[in-house]
C-alpha cells in the first residue's frame, strides 16, 4: 500500500518527520509525495529502508544523508541532491543542479538527465551514474567511488582527484590538475557493466574511457619548493 502525502496540505517538516519515522520503523513502506513545488530538503535524513516517490521537481538538498532508502524524483532536483548519501538509491528522472552527490559515502545516485557543475565533488564512495552530461569541476577532490557519465563532461574534470574512478562515454572538455586518462582493464569493465545495469543505462562498457588520479599531488615535492 502506498501512502500519499500532499504538500499543499502538509508542510515540509511534517512530511519529513513522517518519512523519517517510517524509515526508522524498518518496514520498507511505500510513500508518494505530491505537489512538492520545488521545496527544499525533501526526504532528507532517511535512516532505514523506505520507498519514496516525489511527483514533481524539488529544491535544494533533496534526499540528503540518505541511508538505505530508495528515493525517486519524478522531475528535476535543485542543488545538492543526495548530498552526503550513505547508502540506498536516489533516482532523478530529470536534471540535477550543481554538486549532486557531493561527499557521498555510498549507495547509487542515478541521474537520468544532465547534472550541472561540481557533480560528485569530494565523493567518498558513492556511485553516481549520469545518463546525460555533467558540468565543470565535477569529481573535484573525489576520494572513492565511481562516477559514470554517458554524455560529455565539462571543464576541469577530476581536479585534485584521489582514488575515485571516472568513466566518461562522450567528450571531456578538459581534465583538472592531476587527472589523467587511464587504461580500461577487465576489472574496470566489470565494475562499469554492473553500474550500467543497476542504473538501467543503455550503454556498453567498451564505449567509455576511464580517468583517474596521476597521484602526483599526493605528496609535497621538494623540487617544487621554489614555486610556493
Amino acid at each position: 500500500m502506498t501512502t500519499t502525502l500532499d504538500m499543499t496540505a502538509t508542510d515540509l517538516r511534517a512530511v519529513n518527520t513522517t518519512l523519517q519515522a517510517a524509515a526508522r520503523a524498518q518496514a520498507n513502506e511505500d510513500y508518494e509525495i505530491i505537489n512538492p513545488r520545488g521545496a527544499h530538503a525533501m526526504a532528507c535524513g532517511l535512516d532505514g529502508p523506505l520507498t519514496v516517490t516525489i511527483k514533481g521537481s524539488t529544491g535544494y538538498y533533496c534526499a540528503g544523508m540518505n541511508k538505505e532508502a530508495t528515493v525517486t524524483v519524478e522531475g528535476s532536483a535543485g542543488p545538492g541532491v543526495a548530498e552526503n548519501m550513505m547508502s540506498g538509491i536516489v533516482t532523478i528522472e530529470g536534471d540535477a543542479s550543481q554538486y549532486a552527490g557531493a561527499t557521498g559515502h555510498g549507495g547509487l545516485l542515478n541521474i537520468k538527465g544532465n547534472a550541472s557543475s561540481r557533480c560528485g565533488i569530494s565523493m567518498k564512495g558513492i556511485d553516481i551514474v549520469v545518463h546525460g552530461n555533467i558540468g565543470h569541476m565535477s569529481a573535484f577532490m573525489a576520494q572513492k567511488g565511481n562516477l559514470v557519465v554517458l554524455g560529455d563532461a565539462g571543464d576541469a574534470l577530476g581536479d585534485s582527484l584521489y582514488e575515485a574512478r571516472l568513466f566518461v562515454r562522450g567528450s571531456v572538455k578538459s581534465l583538472g590538475a592531476d587527472c589523467i586518462e587511464k587504461e580500461m582493464r577487465p576489472e574496470h569493465l566489470e565494475i562499469l557493466a554492473k553500474l550500467l545495469e543497476q542504473a538501467g543505462a543503455d550503454a556498453k562498457p567498451e564505449e567509455f574511457k576511464r580517468y583517474g588520479s596521476a597521484r602526483k599531488l599526493y605528496n609535497f615535492n621538494i623540487d617544487h619548493a621554489d614555486e610556493y
Binding site: G38, S57, G59, D95
Partner: peptide, 18 residues
C-alpha cells in the same frame, strides 16, 4: 529556484533547464 515557478500556468509540462 524552481520554487518560484510552482504557480505558473502549465509548469508541469514546461521545458525546465539550468
Amino acid at each position: 529556484e524552481y520554487r518560484a515557478f510552482a504557480d505558473l500556468p502549465g509548469i508541469e509540462a514546461a521545458r525546465v533547464w539550468e
